[in-house]
Amino acid sequence: MLLIRCPYCGERSEIEFANGGEAHIARPADPMSRTDEEWAQYLYMRDNPKGLIAERWRHAHGCNRFFNALRDTRTDRFVMTYEMGRPRPEIDAATAAEAAR
């Protein structure tokens, strides 16, 4: 069971959280102006990276807040968690390598 750091409550076990899928996929401001192709991209296409992913979590059985996390999908190691609305942080090579370990 993963140990996840909620930005508001601190470290809690995975069982208290719900994963919200890939982060930083903003809903288009005016969906009706999007082409069918663009809309399908927004709706369905995800990167599913082997490596670092920015993803959303909700502290569903805690403070009820969504937040973002950077996690390496190969190792389940979290680099960091951060509040919604903040851009995806830049990660230096050493940190990324540590997460991949």
Partner: peptide, 12 residues
């Protein structure tokens, strides 16, 4: 949960 999702993610 769906309402919170939109509220917190898309329309904070």
């Amino acid at each position: 949960a769906l309402m919170e999702d939109y509220l917190q993610t898309e329309w904070p």
